[in-house]
Write a protein that binds this DNA or RNA. Sequence first.
DNA 1: CCATCCCGCCAATTA
DNA 2: TAATTGGCGGGATGG
Length: 869
Amino acid sequence: MGPLTTPTKGLEAPSSEPWTPTSNLKMLISAASPEIRNREKEQAVDSGESENSQEPEQGEEVEKLQISRKDKSLGLLCYKFLARYPNYPNPAVNNKISLDDVATELNVERRRIYDIMNVLESLNMVSRLAKNCYTWHGRVKLAQTLGELKQAGKKNRYEQLMHQIRQRNLEREEREFDLEGEEKENEEMSSFDTDGDSGQAELSGTDPKAASANSRKDKSLRVMSQKFVMLFLVSSPPVVSLEIAAKILIGEDHVVDQDKNKFKTKIRRLYDIANVLSSLELIKKVHVTEDKGRKPAFKWTGPEDLPFPKDPGTSATSSATQPLESRSSVDNCAKNLFSSPGTKRGFTRHHSLVKLVKSIQNDRRKINSAPSSPIKMTGDSANSEFYTNKMAHLAAICKKQLDKQSTGRHIRPNNEVTDALNGSPSHSSESMSASNHQPHGPSGMHIPVLPAGAISYLSTKCSPIIPVLIPQHQAGGSYAVYVHPTSLRPQPTSLAVRSMTFESPGSANAKNSPAAMTSSNQTNHQSSHDKEPTSPSTLKRACGEKSLVESPSKLQRIEPKSISPKLCEILQARLKARRGASVSHRPSPRALHLEFSKPCENQPPSLPTSTAPLEHSVETFLEKEDKVHTSDSEAGLTPVRPPQSQAQKLSVPFQDMGLPSGPIHTETLIPAGYLIPIHQQSIVNFRDAQCSAGEISKASTPTYNVYHTPTAGSRHPLPQEVTPTRLPLHRIPPMSPFPSHGHRIHSPSPAILNFTLQNLGLIPSTTTPNSTPESSSTLPSPHPGLPHQSMIFVKPLSPARALQPASMHGQPVTLISIPQALVTTPKGGQPLQQSFFHTPVSFPTVTNTTAPKNFYIPQRKLDVSPEDN
DNA sequence: CCATCCCGCCAATTA
DNA sequence: TAATTGGCGGGATGG
């Protein structure tokens, strides 16, 4: 069933059909304009068609809508766009996005859609399938992507750069140059980094030559978006002013102002990006009052805890591992999902290849899936989605309006700084909360909201088994699920691509347990094999060349640790001295890391499901990869690019060795790129889903559904970075009892919608018309998709607390339950990805830590005023 | 006046 | 070569 109609179409439908009268109204209204809210207040509900009736209530004739510029804003457009798709799409379905359709439906020029897509693509929320076609991933990979970006940001030392710039500014202000000398020093330091990392990227952008391969293009929006996000993830108060961001994004600030124009342009672009990110609710506008005056800035409101890619090498993270971005090359690579070969060559996937791949994939799935329970995505779900989308759309809008209405800003989180706080000491503690989930909460990022259905897993490395609790209200009580850690990490999915591979090694904790690693590797191998061999050399020239060449260089690598700390200290010292502001440093996670890691090691390597056999030496693995990388792409894997492989190679050994440097270098090299991670998890789900439904769906759609992520980025995590927590988790294979049921929630949207509508008074209560199964959880949780603060207050309880105490004893692992309220969830029916990670080893304290301590922010010079609006 | 940022020309890249 | 992407900056708009 599901498959039939399904997915594909779902999208378009919304466009114009009249859904319900009311809905239309809403849509219109929303679309109409900001003023709407006013209107709403007045009218509240209104009659149909706003236009028609026109309601002169207001009297004015404003004529329908004044089309003010705001009505056309990119942010609003983005909201509309997002409303069309579920936050956690069911992987089984093919979530294709046709640019033409979207543009038509939303009534905008294509150009605008590109802007949105580029930003979303940079966050892995979508990936380009083909010409006019993108695949929607929603927020499934978001947490991971953010984690990777964070790593990349650290690597690039954006934090330091930011500090430097700030200081510089201060100095300038105060006295122009006096301190130049010092600054220079700093700069130099930084510059190195920069050069190493981003610098290159930058250069390329600036310099044509550097770019050689890189198309200049690569640089832009996508890369910019990633860098911008990195800044937030890295800075302690997660507040970034446009000015600073622009400077960093531009090659550097040293450049000085020369190009005013350039600066101006950069700012323009940042606004574009910021609008999209705001729609995603990852950031919000604020003003910072620094020494100078008030400057426009944005505050991060997204999730703070991200999975750390590094550690886990195992799982997904690794994929993440790389943050990388390589800019141009990356892009290219990435883009090429499938293959990416040489510039032109690409293999473009190939039709024929595709078929092969599919078949292969299918086989794999079967295999893999077997153990796992299939998920179901039934047709209904599909249908439901259909509706859902619409609903979501409306809901989103409504929500938005509501928000506006409710002026209140909620809390300002200024201090959300959780990260900073906790962060340094332990990500771990903090992290827990919700890694993945969406953020929407107002400011709270951490709130763990889980979808009712969803199961969260904690990954703990430590204990072999991880208990997971899932609280569900309605549905059932909470459940505890035990999962083998191993399974988690190494992802069973064969799909994992090489990216994964390297991840594992690297991430695997610094030390990584061999077993785990191997397993993962293995998987990769398999998958990779099948696929196409082509890719290897081909990559884009750029990629290959650069990576190759550069990789060797270790420039950065070396210093990072050594240097960075120094710099930090210096900077901090300076800052303190000057301002008294302090910069928070994060303590290096490493120490923790190690500790944690050990436990992990203990775990049994083998996984039940995991396919991963162990073994394979890295080398082997590598070899294979080289040959094959891409193969997976279809499977949903990402394509690989040769360079990566190399990188991996390098990295692997090093890591194993325990040397950070190796891998790092690579990264460094490419700093600027755009990252594209791969997620296993998703894959997994996907598979599962497919098992059940997949075939059908496929049949319907010839295309590949796969979603592969575009590419994996190449890099791996830095060794340094290894953070203690690793969490990867995300979806687990179907071990858990429940998940199997498909019930999932797919899109929250309906729920939300209801919620919204109810609030509005539009509808009585209860479910939406088309109920979807998930309806059970009526509560509206704000979904990721629509975040609203206002809508629901989810209080972030400390998760730990919420959960049962049991967890405590249970071991190191803490469990977190999530209120079911939150509906959201991924559709996959499965466990979603939320991962919580708790720190594995928790000492008793851990739990505690999580919550409460957030408040203090060390220094902050900046005042942030919420502005909104 | 100035912060935002829409619009769309037109170049780069693809098909 | 045509079409698709998407850099880029003029200049409009709202505050």
